[in-house]
Simulated scan of single mutants.
Amino acid sequence: MVAGLTACGVIVAAISTASDLTQAFRMGYLTLTSPLAIFLSQAAGTALGCVISPVIFRAFQNGGDGITAKSYRGIDILGVSHHGLPRHSVLLCELAFSLALALGVLREASSRRRWRIHRYIPSTAAMAVAFFVSPKVSIGMFTGSMATYLWGRGDDSGHGARLLSPEVACGLICGDGFGSLLSSMLTQAPICIKFLS
C-alpha cells in the first residue's frame, strides 16, 4: 500500500508538467497561437530551468560561507519578512520529528512481535505522501476512504461495498472531471482572440 501511495504521489507530481502544457495549448487555441510555437516555448523554458537550477545550486555550494549566508538571509527576508520564523516553529518541528520516529519504531516493534495493535498504528511513510501532493488530492483520498469505510460498516452482507466501491470511485473521479470541465467553461468563455498589427 505504501508503495502504491508513493507511486501515486510521484505520478501526480510528474503529470503536473503535462497538465501545464495542456493548459498552454488550450490558451494557445483560444488566442489562435501556433501549437508548435507553444510547444517550443515550453521546451525552451524547461531547458532553461535544467540549466539555471544547477548553476544556482553550484553558486550556493561554491560561493563561500559569506555569499551563501547572505543569499539565504535574502531568501528568508523575501519569504517571511524581517520577523523570521513563527514563534514555536522549531519546537513544532522537533515534536513532529519525534512523533514520526516513535511511530516508526512502535510500528516495526509491533510488527515483529505480532501485537494486535499493529493494525491501528499509522505508517509514517504513507502519511508523508499527503505532503507531496496537492491538498485537493489528499482531501479527496480521505473523503473516499471514509466513505468506503462507513459503507462497509453499514453494509449487512459485506459484499456490496467491496464489489461496488471501485465503480463508485471511478464515477466520482469522472464526475469531478466533468465538474472541472464545466467550471473551466464557465470561467473562461470559449472565444477566439486574434491580435492584429
Rank of each mutant, 00 (worst) to 15 (best):
M1K: 05
L5G: 06
T6V: 10
C8W: 13
A13E: 06
A14V: 09
S16V: 10
T17Y: 13
T17R: 12
S19R: 05
D20Y: 14
L21R: 05
A24I: 03
F25W: 09
F25V: 04
R26V: 14
M27R: 14
A44F: 13
A44P: 04
A44C: 12
A47K: 01
A47C: 02
G49S: 08
V51N: 03
R58G: 06
A59I: 09
N62I: 13
G63A: 05
G64Y: 04
G66I: 07
G66T: 13
G66S: 09
G66P: 02
T68M: 07
S71N: 03
S71K: 03
Y72A: 09
R73K: 15
G74H: 08
G74S: 09
D76I: 11
I77G: 06
V80H: 15
H82Y: 06
H83S: 08
L85I: 05
P86S: 14
P86D: 10
R87S: 15
H88D: 15
E94A: 12
A96H: 06
F97V: 11
F97D: 06
L103K: 06
G104S: 13
G104F: 07
R107E: 02
A109F: 03
A109K: 04
S110R: 02
W115D: 09
R119H: 03
R119F: 05
Y120Q: 07
Y120D: 05
P122V: 01
A126L: 00
A126T: 01
A128H: 02
V129G: 00
A130I: 01
F132M: 06
V133M: 09
V133N: 05
V133A: 07
S134R: 07
I139Q: 10
G140N: 07
F142E: 00
F142S: 01
T143Y: 13
T143H: 12
A147D: 05
T148G: 11
Y149W: 11
Y149E: 03
L150M: 14
W151Y: 02
G152W: 02
R153Q: 15
D155A: 00
S157C: 11
S157K: 05
G158R: 00
H159R: 09
A161G: 13
L163Q: 01
L163C: 00
P166E: 07
V168Q: 04
A169M: 11
G171R: 09
I173M: 10
C174M: 07
C174T: 03
G175F: 00
D176R: 02
D176H: 10
G177I: 08
L181A: 13
Q188K: 13
A189G: 02
I193P: 03
I193L: 15
L196E: 08
S197R: 12
